[in-house]
Simulated scan of single mutants.
Amino acid sequence: MEIQQFDRESKGFFKVLEEEKEAGRMTYSWAGNDRIIIDHTEVNSEFKGKGVGKQMVLSAVDFARDKGISIIPLCPFARSVFDKHEDLRDVL
Rank of each mutant, 00 (worst) to 15 (best):
E2Y: 06
E2W: 01
Q4F: 13
Q4N: 12
Q5D: 11
Q5P: 11
D7F: 00
R8N: 14
R8P: 03
R8H: 13
S10R: 10
S10Y: 13
K11N: 15
K11R: 15
K11Q: 15
F13W: 15
F13S: 12
F13P: 13
K15H: 14
K15E: 15
K15W: 13
K15T: 14
L17D: 11
E18D: 12
E19L: 03
K21Q: 14
E22W: 00
E22K: 00
A23W: 05
A23D: 01
G24E: 04
R25Q: 12
R25G: 08
R25M: 11
T27D: 15
Y28N: 01
Y28P: 06
S29H: 12
W30K: 09
A31G: 05
A31L: 13
N33C: 11
N33T: 14
N33D: 15
R35L: 09
I37P: 07
I37V: 15
I38Q: 00
I38D: 01
D39Y: 09
H40E: 07
H40R: 06
H40T: 04
T41F: 06
V43E: 01
V43Y: 01
V43H: 02
V43L: 01
N44I: 08
S45C: 13
E46C: 10
E46M: 12
K48E: 11
G51V: 00
G51R: 04
G51L: 06
V52C: 04
V52T: 07
V52L: 02
G53E: 01
G53Y: 03
G53V: 02
K54C: 04
M56K: 07
M56Y: 05
V57M: 03
L58N: 02
L58K: 05
S59C: 10
A60L: 02
A60P: 02
V61Q: 04
V61R: 03
V61T: 01
F63E: 05
R65Y: 08
D66A: 12
D66N: 12
K67E: 01
K67P: 03
G68N: 09
I69V: 07
I69E: 03
I69Y: 02
S70V: 07
I71C: 04
P73V: 12
C75I: 10
C75T: 11
F77D: 11
A78Q: 03
A78D: 06
R79I: 13
S80G: 07
V81G: 02
D83E: 14
D83T: 00
D83G: 00
K84D: 11
K84A: 14
H85T: 08
H85K: 09
E86Y: 00
E86Q: 07
L88R: 02
D90V: 06
D90N: 06
L92N: 07
